[in-house]
Nucleic acid binder design. Sequence first.
DNA 1: TGTTTATATAAGCAAATTATTATATATTAA
DNA 2: TTAATATATAATAATTTGCTTATATAAACA
Lengths: 114, 114
Amino acid sequence: MEGATVEIEKAATILKLLGDKTRLTMVKMLDTNDYCVCEFVEIFQMSQPAISQHLRKLKDAGVVRETRRGQWIIYSLNKESEYYPFVQSLLHHLPNQDFRLKELEEQGLRISCD
Amino acid sequence: MEGATVEIEKAATILKLLGDKTRLTMVKMLDTNDYCVCEFVEIFQMSQPAISQHLRKLKDAGVVRETRRGQWIIYSLNKESEYYPFVQSLLHHLPNQDFRLKELEEQGLRISCD
DNA sequence: TGTTTATATAAGCAAATTATTATATATTAA
DNA sequence: TTAATATATAATAATTTGCTTATATAAACA
């Protein structure tokens, strides 16, 4: 096995966090692009507080991090996390979600630019 | 990426299931050995119905399966599951739990024999 | 400055989760 | 056949989760 082992308790915490369709999709999307909150609101057709709360959980666990860019707060995967390799290897099994970015762009709603 | 992709929704279901310390430990243990219900009861110091309910969830999702051996019901990882490769790759990141089996044996409480 | 836009936080609530206790079922053994 | 053992299921209670609405904060812009 490559990479260090993840303590069972911490692994369970991360898996529970990713065991939600919205958060799992977010994290898969963040694996290839950065997004701001309002883009997620658009994509998931969910209220802004609901999206913020999902992102806060991911941030508290160190899975994602945020940077302010003007009035927007951009979220990205935290690749420095000691759990990143673990998360990564999960994401490899999931289907690409780039179609969601395409939809955003087609609607002229893309904001973050990497 | 090797192996087929797991639908996001199904992946979230499996991750939520494994996002519980008890179930995650069970599955990691089952990756190398089979166990009966009463062994798990001993190991986790939890009521028998609680253990049965965890196992039922894992069974309903197709992650584990059961075989009766006399009065015992032996649980094992379902390696035929289409999600087995996904589960496997998670388990690789977790620390070995063989010390739990050793403890069982030292207490003379080991029942299942593979 | 005041207004708009993007985001976060708090309070409250319904649904889901995880344990418990009590009871039913199935196999083994006396 | 009866008692003991292993397991499952049902009912229930406590806790957690994920949304909602209302409100606060912070940057941008007129």
